Amino acid sequence: MSKLREQMKYDMDLKGFSEKTKIAYLKHVELFAKYFKKSPELLGEEEIKAYLHHQLIERKMSRSYNTQAYSALKFLYETTLKREWKSYKIPRCKREKKLPKVLSREEVKRIFNVTTNPKHRAILMTTYSSGLRVSEVVNLKVNDIDGKRLQLFVQGGKGQKDRYTVLSRKNLELLRDYWKLYHPKTWLFPGQDINEPLCVRTVQKVFENSVRKAGITKDVSVHTLRHSFATHLLESGVDTFYIQKLLGHSSLKTTSIYIHVGNLDGMNIKSPLDDIDNE
């Protein structure tokens, strides 16, 4: 499969796929080939359906996993092997519509309070303050901070899209104190090698430790800070259109999910039953 693998990787490079997506797609194709012990070039629609069914029903893999496997195989056959992909013959698994977990403002404050390392505190506060993905916060550069306009520049976010997002005054002061301690040159949050950004897993571990110290038992991840940023803005009355732009979502439909997790009391929404006796 080495030649086919290289061709698929080349095609994904041309499409501008992220490194993470390329690794995931190649792994799915590798597992598909191993399952049948044949090159994908010798396999077709029936084998693809059988494999996806096996992953979903027998191995009980998640729908999101199966959806990614579907996308990887579709790319392989359509783009690399130049074969027709008939969606009606190879149905895609329906996506799960799960609501994101969200932290309250008080819980976010507790997480910051127990994070005593200045660098770690700056990372977590910047993630929440600007609604960043973990991959975005580790790739921030010193020059991405615009203190005068209170903006933060996100270069090459998801889908390789640049955007500006909000920068809190409180976070700006924290970052200035952090800079005085660490004097980062290029990367705002460098790793052990100052010429490389901090790795994502390090930030995840920092967040996990802080959540545990804060006594929070919710099933949350560092990405929950981004969800909480959006939800808290919505509860404060910020229009979903502006939240969409700050998060870098392509569709307003993606952003509207936060309407379902917002605190209804905080948004001054109440049941019409409460007004019946007043009429």
Rank of each mutant, 00 (worst) to 15 (best):
L225T: 06
R176G: 08
M1R: 13
L26P: 06
R5I: 11
G266P: 08
A24D: 02
T186L: 13
S271H: 10
L172Q: 08
H260R: 13
P100Q: 07
F36T: 11
A214S: 09
K158H: 04
E279H: 14
I257P: 04
T231V: 08
V29P: 02
V108L: 06
A230N: 02
V203L: 03
K180D: 12
N143K: 13
N117V: 03
Q204R: 12
E30I: 00
K205P: 08
N139D: 00
S18C: 03
T80R: 07
Q204A: 05
H249T: 12
I23A: 12
W187G: 09
T217R: 09
M267N: 04
T116N: 13
Q7K: 14
P190C: 05
F207G: 01
A24Y: 01
Q204W: 12
L42F: 08
K119W: 08
Y65H: 14
E208H: 13
P100L: 03
P197L: 09
Q7N: 11
K34P: 01
T79H: 06
F32H: 01
I276P: 11
R83D: 04
R226L: 11
F32W: 00
V137M: 02
H183I: 06
V108D: 05
Y65F: 14
R212P: 00
R121K: 14
T202Q: 12
S18L: 04
L81Q: 02
L225Y: 02
D177W: 06
L124W: 08
Y258G: 01
E136G: 01
R59H: 08
S168P: 10
T255F: 00
V108G: 02
K158R: 06
Q244M: 14
K170Y: 12
C93F: 05
L198M: 15
S250A: 15
